[in-house]
Design a protein around this nucleic acid. Structure first.
Lengths: 149, 149
DNA sequence: CTAGTTGCAAAGAGTTTGCATGGCG
DNA sequence: CGCCATGCAAACTCTTTGCAACTAG
C-alpha cells in the first residue's frame, strides 16, 4: 500500500467535505478555499479527490455531465454493502440497506453472469420529496433508509 | 411546433444511429462520417443530436463523464427501461433490456418513494467473462443483453 | 421568400499532465 | 533523505456559441 502523507491541503479538502454532508463539486472546494484565502492549486484538488475516492473515504458522483462530478464524505465503512440512491434534483444521498438488494444481485448474477459491486453502484433518480413537490430547488437533505422489505 | 427540415446531414446522422443499435457517441459519428469522406461540421452533429433527443427519436445516455454522452436510436417505447452494466475489470458496457428492471423500479418507487432514472444509472461490477477467468486485463468487449427473465 | 440549418473557428467548462519545487515521515 | 505531494501553466476533451452563408419547403 502506498504511503499517504497528511498534508495541509489534504486536511483542508477533507475537512470541507466533512462539514458539507451534501454533495460538493471540485469548483465548490476551489471557491471555498479561495474565499478563505487558503491557496490550494486546482490540480491538487483534483488529485486529492481522486485519491480520497480510491481509498473509499469519499464517494464520487456524476449527476449532470455539464456541471462536472460531485464528491461526498462517506460516514463509515459499512457503505460498501449497500446501494446508494442519489437524487438528481436535491443531491440527497440515500443509503439503502434493503434486503431487496440481495434479490437484485442474485438476478444479475444468475441471469446475466454479472457480479454487482454494490459499493460502487449509484442509482440515480428523484427522491420521495422531490418527486412529490416537483420543486426544482434542492432540499439539501441527507437521508438514510434502512428498510427491511 | 417548429418545422423540421430534412437535410443531408440530418439523414446521415440518423442513418448511422439506425445502423448501430448500440450506443454511439458524438465522436463515433464524427469519425464515421470523416472516414466516409462525408463532411459534416462538429457543431451540426451536436445540434442535430440535441434536436433528435428533444423529439424523442433518439435517447441520450451518460455512462462515463470522461468519454462524453452516448446516443441511441429508439425503436419504440420499450427502450425507456434499461440499465447499463459496466464491468470494472474490462470496461465492457452491457446494455440490459430486461423485464426485471421494471421490478427494480417498482420496488424503489413503492418502498422508497424513489423514482429511478434508468438512463442515468450504471450498475458496476464484474461481467461474466471477468468473473470466470479472473483476468485483470480488459476484454474490450461490447455486448448486449436482451433477455426476458 | 423565410425560417430553419450549416460550417467554421473560437470560446468554455471541467479535468489532466509535465515538471520543478516543496514537505511529510 | 527519499518519496510523495504541490503548484503553475499548458494541454486536452467534449460541447457550445456567434455569425455569415446556405437551403428546404
Amino acid at each position: 500500500m502506498k504511503a499517504e502523507y497528511n498534508t495541509r491541503q489534504r486536511a483542508l479538502i477533507l475537512n470541507f467535505l466533512k462539514e458539507n454532508s451534501a454533495h460538493v463539486s471540485a469548483r465548490d472546494i476551489i471557491n471555498h478555499l479561495k474565499e478563505q484565502g487558503l491557496s490550494v492549486g486546482t490540480a491538487t484538488i483534483y488529485r486529492t479527490l481522486d485519491r480520497l475516492t480510491e481509498q473509499g473515504i469519499i464517494k464520487k458522483f456524476v449527476i449532470d455531465e455539464r456541471s462536472g462530478a460531485c464528491y461526498q464524505f462517506v460516514h463509515g465503512a459499512e457503505c460498501n454493502e449497500h446501494f446508494h440512491l442519489k437524487c438528481i434534483k436535491c443531491g440527497a444521498l440515500i443509503h439503502m440497506d434493503c434486503e431487496f438488494i440481495a434479490e437484485i444481485e442474485e438476478h444479475f448474477f444468475k441471469e446475466h453472469g454479472f457480479t454487482v459491486s454494490s459499493g460502487k453502484t449509484v442509482i440515480y433518480g428523484k427522491c420521495a420529496r422531490c418527486s412529490n413537490c416537483g420543486r426544482d430547488e434542492g432540499h439539501d437533505t441527507y437521508s438514510r433508509c434502512s428498510c427491511k422489505h
